[in-house]
Design a protein around this nucleic acid. Structure first.
Length: 216
DNA sequence: TACCAGGAGAAAA
DNA sequence: TTTTCTCATGGT
């Protein structure tokens, strides 16, 4: 498993180059982006984040001080703006209640993950985005791309539970923050890449050496 | 026009 | 417990 997972990683890295995720200037921007990107394309998230930056609102205390309708208005480009305004406020309240990001860094990964999952609006994938990219914890993020691509490559079944698939990959690769960050980024990069031979294939190119994208 | 995108929670079955 | 519905904008 480890050998095959690393082989896929090396092929993706060779083909796309390092993605250097997460695109953010601060750990809090990672957290905000993780909430805003739920079921939403990143280009739309960038517009909402730009709105927050323009207003100098990209800060937990400020976001809590702003009236929720005003916050929601700035989140319109990211879609689900009422839901996301509430979720962003929930995670900001949680951060402040626990002394902020740097204070939370003292916590053990399992305890931190449980605490994150208890926050309204933070599910497994969002929690793991935050743990890996904001807290530098060796947690493998499972998203639709990961499941689809690795299933098409025959490395996993594809119908595993979120936790089952995460455990499978973390055991297979061993704890490596830098590897997990780059691997997830490359899977997303590949998943977004539309194959000219097989539209919306998301992964077939690696599996079948699609001539449209991978040299024979 | 219909579908999808870097999900999660509530409601219904 | 599992499945379905809701939230919503922007690009293809």
């Amino acid at each position: 498993m480890r050998t095959r997972l690393l082989a896929v990683f090396r092929r993706l890295l060779r083909h796309y180059g390092a993605q250097d995720w997460w695109p953010a200037d601060s750990p809090f921007e990672v957290i905000a982006g993780a909430v805003l990107t739920q079921n939403t394309s990143w280009s739309n998230v960038e517009r909402a984040l730009a709105n927050l930056k323009r207003h100098h609102w990209l800060d937990p205390a400020t976001i809590l001080a702003v009236p929720q309708p005003d916050l929601a208005h700035q989140l319109i480009p990211a879609g689900y703006f009422n839901v996301k305004a509430e979720r962003l406020r929930s995670v900001c309240a949680w951060l402040l209640e626990h002394g902020g990001i740097e204070c939370l860094r003292q916590r053990e990964t399992g305890a931190l993950r449980s605490a994150l999952l208890a926050v309204h609006g933070i599910g497994p994938e969002t929690a793991d985005d935050i743990l890996l990219y904001a807290f530098d914890r060796p947690v493998f993020v499972i998203d639709a791309y990961t499941r689809r691509i690795l299933a098409r490559l025959g490395l996993v079944r594809g119908d595993e539970s979120y936790e089952g698939l995460r455990a499978l990959l973390e055991r297979g690769l061993r704890a490596d923050v830098a590897l997990f960050k780059e691997y997830h980024a490359l899977l997303v990069r590949h998943g977004k890449d539309t194959c000219r031979t097989h539209p919306r294939c998301a992964g077939c190119c690696l599996a079948h050496r699609c001539p449209a994208r991978l040299p024979a």
